[in-house]
Nucleic acid binder design. Structure first.
Lengths: 115, 115
DNA sequence: CGGGATCCGTCCTGATACTG
DNA sequence: CAGTATCAGGACGGATCCCG
């Protein structure tokens, strides 16, 4: 997720696990992917769906995911502009990972929820 | 992983998934946990086992994980000192998550490995 | 050995303002 | 609507020095 990973890629890619974590560990990455699991969404829809994210981070996260072939971007020359984001096939393969994290969160974090 | 999460916990904990990602997404967090899956390790052993980490980040990560009850710390009053780190039961429950990430990494990232 | 404390530079993050 | 530009603050990362 970090911008300087392009420079460090040679080192990081020694280990697939590290590289995966590197991709996954962006603050909003998995949330965006998770939100897109439901299907095609426009930029503003994503922004509204993801609590707490702001424009800049959503743009950044989407660009990163696009460059990694996790997310697909389709722009239509309408006025106002329409841009739709979907998961690629590669992106869809992350579903089991997300499920596992969600499971873990539900089983091991719920008691720490205040209130 | 971030230090300011204690302040933000009320907001973050609205969503268990976000909270999980928050915990997981530390740069070294999952690597440390993964390394400890093999069993008990001393500080220097961990530092040597994890390529690229430095003392400060290992200390930080371990403290964070200790406070979250993921990692257990046992210190022995020997000379020189001996400190052993193990996963707690809660920490062990992350194994399926790590497995899933590893699986995904192997199946979807290996072709991006240079060389 | 197992850290703690500090300095210091870089990069990431978030909020705000602005544009086609 | 879908972004871009900018700026301040905090997190990260490495090096160094210190202690019991």
């Amino acid at each position: 997720m970090k911008a300087n990973q392009q420079k460090n890629n040679e080192k990081l890619s020694e280990c697939p696990f590290q590289e995966a974590m590197d991709l996954i560990s962006g603050k909003w990455t998995m949330t965006v992917i998770n939100t897109l699991m439901a299907g095609k969404l426009r930029f503003k829809e994503l922004e509204r769906a993801i609590e707490g994210i702001n424009t800049r981070m959503l743009v950044k996260t989407l660009k990163e995911l696009e460059s990694r072939k996790i997310v697909n971007r389709k722009a239509y020359a309408t006025v106002p502009p329409t841009v739709e984001y979907t998961l690629t096939k590669k992106g869809m393969t992350l579903q089991p990972v997300i499920k596992e994290i969600q499971n873990w969160a539900i089983n091991n974090l719920q008691m720490t929820l205040s209130q």
